[in-house]
Design a protein around this nucleic acid. Structure first.
Lengths: 245, 245
DNA sequence: CACAGTCCTGGCACTCAGTGACACCAGAAG
DNA sequence: CTTCTGGTGTCACTGAGTGCCAGGACTGTG
């Protein structure tokens, strides 16, 4: 280990952060090289052989670390997926399952933001190369599958069959929106704040389903009305009268 | 045209319905053959060459109709995507954009259900072959991309940045749930009714954002409270007083 | 009838992704 | 020194996907 080959890389420890990449330096080194070549020469014009030799490994080794050429820009996904799983597994028993998924999604976004150069650089690539965009979609779907499964297992029994799907997609929408805006802005927005704003919006909906007792369907009302002082006052009095939460 | 080659197929017009396949018989014939071989021998054990010769076309022709081996079971997606687009384009000008997407999604589901054998047979395959499941995810994402773009363009200007994403994902969740339950049940459930039930649930949320005037953010209140006769009465009077829609 | 144009097809030939099998070499442990 | 183990390189092979060209069917035009 500790290759003396500083050549193509700025240093022997790459450019990207520390947390995940410490686990497997070689994998990230290959990914970094691949993304550089893809950006310089175009995805289709770069063979795996080229990536391998530029990374100073054999072609076979590239395929030992990555399932395919299109996975080269995503060395962090497997780790983050594991992070998401453990965040859900580690949720306190009594926790509202939707809140558990929200917390896990927050963890996932934080992990994204801890590799800003990787994520922003990759965006340049996925925007340009349809095949990589496709791969990104597939990788992303894995997260949603995990949250869907968690919600299906933990939502109260009387829930309608679309509910786990709805919350999973809704929470994912906030994740997508916050991360997407951040990435499109080149890292300028406050993604965590945006995510929390989305969660706040979600929470105003989730109380409907989560509050009531299980059997017989939701015992809540969801009301939408034009804003006005009268409406606010009426709602406030109703809320205070019956539900002093 | 009108090939006299009845050989491997039960008839010269395949097995599946009429609407889309009339457009290109050959494409559906190849798809049918491919799915049969995939189910009989396993996806990885069937080469494109085998599909081609069993379909009585050349290997080259298979790739003229399909972008790749993994697209063989999805001959209907391009047509349905076009259907979705035209449904959105054809929406009446004043229509609530969320309602427009709901209507388009209804059309999409109907189109799915018009090919029951194809869809149910394909489910056996996608459940079994990860690569095909992946392709299904990607194809599905295309629909959501279209609806997202439509909502982003047509939602009122003051809407928060996550809103188009949220509604798109939410409506898609209903589509996924209804179609998924139908497919998993082997075609036994009433998918259209399930979809409408989901839409009804969505409508209780959507009124919030769609009603208000544009500038300065949503001019609506969203309230969630415990159900009670008093609450219902109070809300009814508020609604009648200010918003006689 | 002759001829040009178009569309769909088959037939190569080629690149390259991905995989299996085996050999090699480091270091750790006995 | 021997043995085991984990990471690596080398080689050979299958098969997906593409570019190019040629041929046949059909159409319209002179």
């Amino acid at each position: 280990m500790t290759p003396r080959t500083v050549g193509l890389l700025g240093s022997d420890r790459g450019t990207w952060g520390t947390p995940v990449m410490a686990a497997d330096r070689t994998k990230y080194r290959i990914a970094e090289t691949a993304m550089r070549l893809f950006l310089e020469q175009g995805y289709e014009n770069v063979t795996v052989e080229a990536v391998a030799s530029a990374s100073e490994v054999s072609r076979r080794t590239v395929f030992r670390y990555f399932g395919g050429k299109d996975e080269l820009p995503f060395p962090d996904h497997s780790g983050r997926l594991e992070l998401l799983r453990s965040a859900l597994d580690g949720a306190a028993p009594g926790t509202d399952p939707v809140e558990a998924v929200i917390a896990a999604t927050r963890v996932s976004l934080r992990d994204f933001l801890s590799h800003p150069e990787l994520v922003l650089r990759r965006y340049q690539l996925t925007r340009l190369v349809p095949e990589l965009r496709t791969r990104e979609v597939v990788e992303h779907e894995r997260y949603v599958v995990v949250t869907r499964a968690y919600l299906r297992a933990n939502l109260p029994d009387g829930s309608p069959p679309y509910l786990h799907m709805a919350w999973a997609q809704l929470i994912d929408a906030m994740h997508r929106a916050a991360l997407g805006d951040w990435v499109r802005s080149g890292g300028a927005t406050d993604a965590e704040a945006d995510l929390e704003a989305g969660f706040a919006w979600i929470r105003r909906l989730v109380r409907t389903e989560a509050g009531g007792a299980g059997a017989g369907g939701p015992a809540s009302l969801l009301a939408v009305l034009p804003d006005s002082p009268e409406a606010r006052a009426a709602l406030a009095s109703l809320r205070d009268a019956s539900h002093p939460l």
